[in-house]
Design a protein around this nucleic acid. Structure first.
Lengths: 222, 222
DNA sequence: GCCATCATTATTGTTGACAATTATGTAGAC
DNA sequence: GTCTACATAATTGTCAACAATAATGATGGC
């Protein structure tokens, strides 16, 4: 096995979190990760720093890293902001779209469909998030792009934390619908479809329980 | 001199960029920085990674770090998104504001005024950006907070890159005006004042020249 | 004199060892 | 039996030396 890059390791960990193999609160010891991936601790450290900025883990001084456990409020926040950003991406996209880009995006959805049919969970997660990042990339706004990447990764964590495990991810149909509206140049319809899509994803989560965020053990027990 | 933390070094570099002592395009050699701050290269490396994620420097593999030079398009993007985010912060702020928070914010503006009167450039920069981050913190939305920090730091870079050097930073008056509206519970007025404020800042930049972004030397010379 | 090739230098990337810190387990006093 | 203080172990934080890579300058051929 060749030595993995920082990005590759980060993606593997991200996937494990999204697949709920790594649950919120789990500790991520540097040495263990280093052994698992066959790399040095220094590299693991870089990975953890990267994951922290993506909101997937939290690092405490001299304590190490644990998988972040977002609260219900965090979840709602992210979805709220994300819907706003996605709308803006669609607006930016208007006029920037040529045939080549459209083809590429439809191809992406096709891949999503294949992964969905073969029930390849890992690919589904990657492609499903990738769709939204791709949209941002097409909009040619660099900052939006990074922001979207961030939001998608945080959404993965939230989905993993609050999803009923038996409910599967949404299919690619809603993505395709957005694309169709974009192809027709109907921005408003696309925005509507996007809003519905995000609402749908959010509705499948168990965000009802607004258990108070037990910031400390003391708060959790008294 | 005690050994500086990563955050302290990052702030020093950020300030230097905002003060235009470090200009876009300048190289940041690890060894030099390590000597200047009296720390090891490893720590400098962490700092540079942090600054990269804040968009202040760009790092190329095996080439090192240089101060980022944002294009006009980047600048407009940032201001565009920032105005949207600031609006959202103000919305979130409604209802969350108590007397203590208001006092704290007015105190902040007071500090800004002091720094402004004594023409302490470094403090002006810190406090002026700090005002907006503080607003986000008061809104108690963690993600918004990080996002605002990011946007503020990028704005600093843009300001440094495109500001006419003789024009000084905007005074604290506009910040205070926003606060007054918030105190009165007039959300719409606050949003308007914020929009005007950002527009004012942007208007003082020389964003007219939409020189094509010379991605490579070739593009710049032919 | 000009160009291509190679050697040198400078800079970044990586690693493993060591220091500092926190958590855990143990013994002794009461 | 329970609590405190100490010793031990586990883990993270830091560093300095080494390897790999890219930029620079020198040399020889034409």
């Amino acid at each position: 096995m060749e030595t993995l890059t920082v990005e590759q390791i980060a993606e593997r960990i991200w996937l494990s979190i999204a697949e709920r193999r790594l649950r919120p609160g789990m500790r991520l010891k540097e040495i263990e990760l280093a052994e698992v991936f066959g790399v040095s601790r220094a590299r693991v450290r870089q990975v953890l720093a990267m994951l922290e900025r993506d909101g997937l883990v939290v690092i405490e001084s001299n304590k190490g890293a644990v998988v972040a456990k977002p609260g219900v409020e965090d979840a709602k926040d992210i979805f709220h902001i994300r819907s706003a950003v996605e709308q803006r991406v669609l607006e930016r996209l208007t006029g920037q779209l040529d045939a080549a880009k459209l083809v590429e995006m439809f191809e992406h959805v096709a891949k999503e469909r294949i992964a969905n049919n073969s029930n390849n969970q890992r690919e589904i997660i990657k492609l499903s998030g990738g769709f939204h990042v791709m949209l941002a990339e097409m909009a040619e706004a660099e900052f939006l792009c990074g922001l979207m990447r961030d939001l998608v990764s945080r959404t993965s964590l939230i989905t993993a934390a609050f999803r009923d495990s038996n409910k599967h991810n949404c299919g690619p149909d809603e993505h395709e619908e957005i694309l169709l509206h974009l192809k027709n140049g109907d921005l408003e319809a696309a925005k509507k479809a996007m809003a519905d899509h995000l609402e749908h994803v959010e509705s499948e989560l168990k965000l009802l329980q607004d258990r108070a965020p037990p910031k400390s053990l003391r708060d959790a027990l008294v």
